[in-house]
Computed example of a mutant assay.
Amino acid sequence: MSTVAATVTEAPVQPALKDLVGLDREQLAEELKMLGLPKFRAGQIWHWIYHRGVTDFAAMTTLAKPLRAQLAEHYKIGRPEITREQWSEDGTAKWLLKFDDGNEAEAVFIPDDDRGTLCISSQVGCTLTCSFCHTGTQRLVRNLTAGEMVAQILVALDRLEGFPTAQEDRRLTNIVLMGMGEPLYNFDNVKRAMMIAMDGEGLGLSKRRITLSTSGIVPEMERCGEEIGVNLAVSLHAVNDELRNTLVPINKKYPIKDLIEACKTYPGVNNARRITFEYVMLKGVNDSLEDARALVKLIEDIPAKINLIPFNPWPGVAYECSDDETIEKFAQVVLNAGYASPVRTPRGRDILAACGQLKSASERLRKKDRIAAIAAASAG
């Protein structure tokens, strides 16, 4: 008796759809050219993605239905999955976002009376190991793509009802690259993402409303000013190399002297467009009046303002926050020297969204949730 082997026919594997989010105008036009579409179609699709915020080609009603169907066969307009959304009592919102490869990063929206600022991440993890920053205790996993950075903005606009983007009372008005990671270690992707954000026919954010925060990657600072043209914030935190080597270890490679010179020559810096120096207040470490006087001496002749940041403690850290009286006296020295010295009001502490708390705090929460779930299951 002969046996005939059964023939198994496997379903063909469908190719992954390419995400159009994060492509600049030229790249988008090239993609569409491969489908035989004229260049003006790129402008139409750009408008729908970034001005109108659509995620479905079927909603692009200025395009013929066959064209919409053709686009849907090849492309997607992606959004990362929101794995955790939290709203603080003070109005701050935080989104933990999962990208296609399973990695996560956070974005935080901070509302104020005169603006709404979105803090976005540029990397998954961080490589700088600043000793006071909990985010810096995480290993660097990878750079975020331009699309993943733009997607953080799109998610925020979705949740804040920010589309279409040309609203006079728009809630999201400013972007700060102050989330996870060092933006200047991911320069090309950051540049492309910010060019998309600044496009007047899309997200429409002025370069004067975008601030990039760096720990002092000196060789890339001039390039940032010339090629992106956004505001610069520098994580200074100390007035001498000995202390800054401990607080911000990248200082061993790019010491304060070189950092200050790069600030003085940052393209476009003037009294109307000042550099922001960020200075976290650490009790008994960098908060003396002598430190304050040394700080204003260090940055003299640089159009600048100084953000004094109350330290946000985390479990196991060796530092404490300076007390209110010390911070006030420090700020007064800076103010008397002619520099604006706002004390940054901690925002979103109840949802672990404050400066230096991103992602790692969320990981602790998820671990806590898992432990609680196991305990509940055992009890049942």
Rank of each mutant, 00 (worst) to 15 (best):
L67W: 02
G125S: 04
E30H: 15
F163D: 09
K94A: 00
F40G: 11
W46V: 01
P249F: 04
P219R: 11
T345A: 13
R364G: 05
A372V: 05
L232A: 12
S360H: 03
V141Q: 12
I217M: 05
D188M: 10
N143H: 11
D113N: 08
G179I: 06
I371F: 09
L154R: 11
Q70L: 06
I217F: 07
K368D: 14
I175F: 09
A29D: 07
N312Q: 10
G338V: 12
V334E: 03
P310G: 03
L282A: 10
C130E: 03
G338A: 04
A331F: 02
I228E: 00
W48M: 07
R171W: 14
L358V: 05
L282H: 00
G348F: 03
L259C: 14
L37C: 07
E328S: 12
R209Q: 09
R159T: 11
D114C: 05
Q86P: 00
A16P: 04
S360F: 07
L140A: 07
S341L: 08
E31R: 15
F163Q: 11
A304V: 06
R171G: 04
I217N: 01
P313Y: 05
Q152C: 14
L172S: 07
V150M: 06
F57V: 04
G136P: 00
V269M: 06
D199Q: 10
I82E: 08
I260M: 08
L335N: 12
K283T: 00
P267R: 03
I327N: 04
G316T: 07
I275S: 01
A151R: 07
T211Q: 02
S215G: 15
L23K: 10
R244G: 03
T127H: 09
N307C: 10
G216H: 05
L352G: 02
G284T: 08
T211V: 14
D112G: 01
D101A: 09
D241R: 05
S213L: 11
A16Y: 11
N336C: 09
D101M: 06
V218E: 07
K257C: 03
A318F: 01
L23F: 10
W46N: 03
P313D: 03
L157K: 12
I299W: 00
I260T: 02
M195Q: 11
V239P: 03
G348Q: 06
N336M: 08
G91M: 04
R68W: 02
K257N: 14
S206R: 12
M194C: 15
T135A: 06
V13R: 14
A354N: 05
A379D: 12
G204W: 15
E320T: 15
M1G: 10
F40R: 13
E201I: 04
E363R: 13
P183W: 13
C224Q: 08
G316K: 01
G36D: 12
G380E: 14
G316V: 10
R370G: 13
P38S: 10
V124H: 02
I309K: 05
T62E: 06
G91L: 08
G147A: 08
G380L: 13
P183A: 09
S322F: 02
A233C: 05
A146V: 13
R274P: 01
A58F: 12
G179L: 07
R192N: 14
G348V: 12
I110T: 02
N251P: 01
W48T: 01
A361G: 14
G284Q: 04
G36M: 12
Q138L: 15
I250S: 02
D241F: 05
G181I: 11
G204D: 15
Y50K: 00
